[in-house]
Design a protein around this nucleic acid. Structure first.
Lengths: 189, 189
DNA sequence: CAAACAAACTAACAAGTGTTAGTTTGTTAG
DNA sequence: CTAACAAACTAACACTTGTTAGTTTGTTTG
């Protein structure tokens, strides 16, 4: 277990605060209080409030990009690729609960990195859609607008952070299995 | 078509701004600029920034409560009740796209009405879960944790505002049908 | 011991915040 | 015409914001 630097600690605590109130509503004094120091002291470790947001969001967004690249590379069936994506979201969300909140709620407050983030996101969505379209063409998947399917599945996966149990891995495996059932086969018996 | 009062106009424009940047990041001067007046002039029509947020969120939350009450009253099957809930979300979301953004992102910035909102939300979720549990008991619905099913379906429905087409009603009917398929029967063929 | 460093501090700033007070303007009703 | 009113304005307030400058404190290293 690598020791956390003071900077990483600040970013981690900031993400927790961002989850509760959002980036804009969290002040540097709030963050300092949570760290038990004064606001000015934060600047010994970080460059700006904006930098904190960038660190949180971009690092997670890039994890998704890496994960999607590996899903695309596999020669699994479309349904299996979907399951891999579901597992990817459960994995990343469970390990970055607070960061996922910032990614979902506060990406629009990015400045220098806004376009970078947007590109990562739209590439990800395009890859996702491509997988679905292949499934439709091969007959694996129902012939409904891929946009709607992607939206439906992806918004559920993106909201996992709101809901995921911080408990043991057992529950995460079970959650993944349940999501596989629900998102792919639906809820009807 | 009832004429919109100046106050309603301010609240409508505020909701649009809130959708883009969130409640905290929108200043009264931003809102005033969007209305082509000075910030102080807003206060001839509204009491406070907080009041605007309350108007937006509570009015929509209560629409959902009313809708759920009517779903519960029907003697339809569980699957049909689910479809009614889906239709309810498409209806309310399409008519309150900006307001839904505030409801989803900024409810935590409510002050006096925070507890009221939370109660409406948890009652709604309990009613939703009750419907699912009935479906599981009657064998209509797969036997997976109702919490996970509710979470999965409800987060998709709650995010509709991000995605709904502002186009014609035809598309809304089609969207509703597609969501019925995807959320209930899944995407697999 | 002395030098170096990490990490805290106090004090302050310029800009921005929601909001109030009091006033002006133009339109509507008696 | 005048009284009433809706709706805008200017000016200002007390407070909060992110951030900088310069300093102090305690620990680690040569």
């Amino acid at each position: 277990m690598k020791q956390e630097t003071r900077q990483e600690e600040i970013i981690r605590v900031a993400a927790q605060l961002f989850k509760e109130k959002g980036y804009s509503a969290v002040t540097m004094r709030d963050l300092a209080t949570a760290m038990n120091i004064k606001a000015a002291s934060l600047y010994n470790h970080i460059n700006s409030k904006q930098d904190i947001l960038e660190s949180i969001i971009i690092s997670i967004a890039e994890k998704f990009t890496v994960g999607m690249t590996s899903v695309l590379a596999s020669d699994a069936t479309c349904i299996e690729k979907l399951k891999e994506i579901i597992a990817l979201h459960v994995e990343i969300s469970s390990q970055n609960i607070y960061g996922m909140a910032a990614l979902n709620h506060d990406w629009m407050h990015l400045e220098a990195q806004l376009n970078h983030y947007k590109k990562l996101r739209s590439d990800y969505e395009n890859d996702f859609k491509t997988i679905l379209i292949e499934g439709v063409n091969s007959g694996e998947i129902i012939d409904i607008k891929p946009d709607v399917m992607m939206f439906s599945i992806l918004t559920t996966l993106r909201s996992l952070y709101l809901w995921i149990p911080k408990k043991e891995d057992v529950n995460l495996k079970e959650l993944t299995n349940n999501l596989n059932e629900i998102l792919i086969k639906g809820v009807v018996k």
